[in-house]
Nucleic acid binder design. Structure first.
Length: 469
RNA sequence: GGCGCGGUAGCCAAGUGGUAAGGCCGAGCUCUGCAAAAGCUCUAUCGGCGGUUCGAUUCCGCCCCGCGCCUCCA
């Protein structure tokens, strides 16, 4: 069964297929701006894209997928941060890039094959801008900036179906600058010493020094690393307009050919029913959630499995509890399977096939979850030979690979140690239990519970865990 | 004003023109001094009103409610 994915331009589901004769699937995913820690909304998109990458590898083979995800390391926000911190741009972007990589690794996202930075591709961007100027699709403004002339591209608006007169009037006033038309967008932004500090590069022929606009970077990096036409271009819905609309305009006018065969956009994450923002106090980074005691794998599960990627997902801390319980069941199930299989190695059985099919059907993760637990519920250890169990284990592991869920790693954060007062109570209860003083033991358990601790007995020892918040 | 999305059990969430997957939580039972873990079982008629149809949660129309986006935010 081929992978079918919703396509934003046609608004239909289309099969994913490599178009080039080399059979390599070319996949570009718009990456983060590295000026602050990425928040979990960002990571929903990256986790979803990671599953696309994994499905593509399963479908076409690991060496037949070329996945590019950029880092935006120069734009208004990164530069704004240099001004705020009075530190060089590279220092700031390096710091946040490092954290982004760490978060991605914790969330078990595969590294893209290329991770270009905007500042690493200035020449490529400049040269595209020059071509656009030569072709009459771009013009130099009075201040030395270069703008794309939207009216020169007939198909503009095809992706977002937005017409310039439909844009909110208030936004049109604010951004007058030196443009010929309000909908024209910057390809190159002239250097403003008071705002940009020392961030500048030599501009395209006929323009001043400055820096590239945001949109051109993706066009240039995609062209440089994947060629003029790619198989799939993805990002969050917010990028649909203007970012992707503008990329299409730039790339197609410059290259004279179709830019992307397939556009895919994942929906936004909401937190507590509304847009996440620092002022609302519902803004979470991965670090924030780890600090609350959740594992990154639980976060991945919640971001991926608890809602369809093309529907807004309302994230709550409660959903992390759900995810945690679900993930624990997966872990338990795998242990049972592995125990039964022993050392036997085998090819995947047909079990869990429906899970993969659900993913191939427009990344329907909730459906996949249904199939997954449905199959787990049907599994019975009785009558299973080690061979069968090994086959089922191989099939299960394939599903875990596709979803990027690592249940074998001990990703659980260490439980905090109990304070001395609690351990003392626990010891007392243990003693009471050994003396078969059930009433005393129960009373002590109640005390522990009241203090927020749970005492888990085993044959000849016990451990203490804090009760769930 | 424009573009778009959603309203399915306590919560989350798939899905189908013929009487609703799954997860979480909860309850009962088994097991176990208790608790935990594990296992079994149970829990909805799909926002409202019309229409089409033998039959609609699923198609059409209207209405109500909630939400997102609209130039540099994944």
């Amino acid at each position: 069964m081929p992978i079918r994915l919703h396509e934003s331009l046609s608004r239909t589901q289309r099969e994913l297929q490599p178009a080039q004769p080399d059979g390599v699937f070319r996949f570009y995913n718009c990456g983060p701006t590295v000026y602050a820690p990425a928040h979990i909304g960002n990571f929903r998109t990256f986790v979803v894209n990671d599953v696309i990458r994994r499905l593509l590898e399963l479908e076409f083979g690991p060496d037949k997928v070329k996945h590019v995800r950029n880092l935006t390391d120069v734009d208004d926000r990164t530069i704004g941060q240099t001004q705020k911190e009075k530190r060089p741009l590279a220092e700031i972007t390096k710091k946040w890039t490092g954290l982004f990589h760490a978060d991605c690794a914790a969330l078990n996202c595969l590294r893209p094959h290329h991770e270009p930075t905007a500042t690493g591709y200035i020449k490529e961007q400049v040269s595209m801008i020059e071509v656009l100027m030569e072709k009459g699709n771009a013009y130099r403004a009075a201040d030395g900036s270069v703008y794309f002339k939207v009216s020169s591209f007939e198909d503009y608006g095809a992706l977002s179906r937005i017409k310039e007169r439909e844009l909110k009037v208030t936004n049109m006033v604010a951004d007058s600058d030196h443009k010929d038309a309000v909908s024209d967008f910057a390809l190159w932004k002239a250097w403003k010493p008071e705002e940009d500090g020392d961030v500048k590069w030599p501009g395209p022929r006929g323009a001043g020094a400055g820096r590239p606009g945001w949109h051109i970077e993706c066009s240039a990096m995609s062209k440089a690393l994947l060629g003029d036409t790619i198989d799939l271009h993805t990002g969050g819905v917010d990028l649909l307009f203007p970012h992707h609309e503008n990329e299409i305009a730039q790339s197609q006018c410059c290259n004279g050919t179709q830019f992307a065969h397939h556009w895919y956009h994942s929906e936004h994450l909401l937190v507590d029913g509304t847009t996440m923002s620092k002022s609302k106090g519902n803004y979470y980074t991965l670090g924030d959630l780890l600090a609350k005691g959740y594992s990154a794998m639980v976060v991945r599960y919640a971001l991926l499995m608890m809602g369809h990627p093309r529907k807004q997902l309302n994230f709550t801390l409660d959903s992390l509890h759900t995810a945690e319980s679900s993930l624990t069941r997966l872990r338990t199930f795998r242990s049972a399977l592995a125990a039964k299989a022993g050392a036997v190695q085998a090819q995947p059985s047909g079990r869990f096939k429906a899970v993969l099919d659900a993913l191939r059907d427009d990344l329907n993760t909730p459906w996949a979850q249904g199939e997954l637990f449905g199959d787990i519920n049907l599994w019975k250890p009785e009558g299973q030979t080690a061979q069968h169990a090994a086959e089922d284990l191989a099939a299960f592991d394939q599903i875990l690979f596709a979803l990027g869920l690592d249940v074998t790693a001990t990703t659980e954060p260490p439980k905090p140690a109990a304070p001395a007062a609690i351990t003392a109570l626990a010891d007392q209860r243990w003693a009471a239990k050994q003396a078969k003083d059930w009433a005393g033991a129960d009373a002590l358990r109640k005390e522990l519970t009241a203090a927020g601790w749970s005492m888990l007995d085993s044959k000849d020892s016990y451990r203490l865990e804090p009760l769930k918040k």
